[in-house]
């Protein structure tokens, strides 16, 4: 197998004072191939944002820190890199779009300057070429009349437009990996669809690998080839979109799939997974999904299930389905 673009192995992240730290991301491992789009799903608070921030080493410290693991990008462990080397990678090789379009742009800088800054930091262009490129990426993300909008400030745009500016900024340097942390969650539905279309067309034109974070499996199926499912800071299932949609092996993933509304559906109520997500780091022993699981057996409470392999591309951490498979 060729070396993946990004290989995350056993990454754990803790928050709070060392003495009673809360582990919000626990031994997470997955990888992304060059040009591949991977979806990361999970309920609110499952650790998706923290996992993605750890790739760029942007976890606010204090209170958080990456306590173990490795994050290899093109074979180089980012966690071993001296902190002053990270800025070379951020924005150039790995770019990120954030969950909060309203607050993620600097209110006192024009959008033109903010996009140009990304170029200035990483590319050796003269002024004219730089502005040319800014206009180019702005039209790529569907900004009407981009040349006239360079001097506008973020507050002059709607949320959807701001998210387009964020995307333009992220793709300006043609990153090898684009991390999109719920790029559409804060937007209303029609705008969501537009931004997703945009992500798709960008993927086609820039050929960047994408890590798309969402709590919406539908969004992920639309854009990605592979899915990673997180629950309470752990990866519980991982596989190709087809195999996970057709044959989910973890009861949590099954629940997630059942709660997607469908047109051919005559159920009166949507399926709902009973109970609530345990506080990250609160489950010390056994499967974190135990309390809400319909399949649970005694073993689940006692011991954390390992990742069982269901096929070459499909793994899930469940004692019941996993042992039945063996």
């Amino acid at each position: 197998m060729t070396r993946p673009l990004l290989k995350i192995s056993d990454v754990s992240v803790e928050f709070g004072p060392k003495a009673n730290a809360i582990r919000v991301v626990d031994s997470v491992s997955f990888s992304i191939g060059a040009g591949e789009a991977v979806g990361l799903v999970g309920e609110s608070g499952s650790g998706k944002s923290i996992t993605s921030l750890s790739i760029l080493r942007l976890i606010p410290d204090p209170p958080g820190r990456i306590v173990s693991g490795s994050i290899e990008f093109e074979g180089q462990d980012l966690l071993k890199l001296p902190a002053n080397r990270m800025p070379e990678i951020r924005g150039r090789d790995i770019a990120m779009i954030f969950q909060e379009p309203m607050s993620s742009l600097n209110p006192v800088m024009t959008i033109g300057d903010q996009i140009a800054e990304a170029l200035m930091l990483h590319q050796d262009l003269d002024r004219d070429a730089r502005w040319q490129r800014v206009i180019e990426v702005l039209s790529l993300v569907g900004m009407p009349d981009p040349a006239a909008r360079l001097g506008a400030f973020p507050h002059e745009f709607s949320g959807g437009m701001r998210q387009r500016v964020m995307i333009a900024m992220a793709v300006a340097c043609n990153p090898k990996l684009l991390i999109a942390d719920e790029p559409t969650t804060a937007l209303d539905v029609t705008i969501q669809a537009q931004v997703l279309e945009l992500m798709k067309s960008i993927r086609a034109s820039v050929n960047t690998a994408i890590l798309l974070i969402s709590h919406d499996l539908g969004v992920i199926a639309d854009l990605c080839e592979r899915v990673v499912v997180m629950y309470s800071g752990r990866i519980v299932e991982e596989g190709s979109v087809e195999s996970i949609f057709s044959k989910p092996e973890h009861p949590y993933t099954r629940g997630l799939l059942q709660s997607i509304p469908r047109l051919d559906d005559d159920r009166k109520r949507l399926y709902q997974i009973a109970g609530t997500v345990p506080m990250a780091g609160s489950v010390k022993k056994g499967c974190p999904f135990y309390a809400r699981c319909d399949l649970r057996v005694d073993k689940c409470a006692a011991e954390m299930p390992p990742m069982f392999e269901f096929s070459k591309q499909h793994k899930a951490a469940c004692w019941v389905t996993g042992e039945a498979e063996q």
Partner: peptide, 13 residues
């Protein structure tokens, strides 16, 4: 603030 995180994410020192 979020926009400071954005600045870091684009590679500002």
């Amino acid at each position: 603030k979020d926009y400071v995180r954005t600045a870091r994410a684009k590679g500002a020192r």
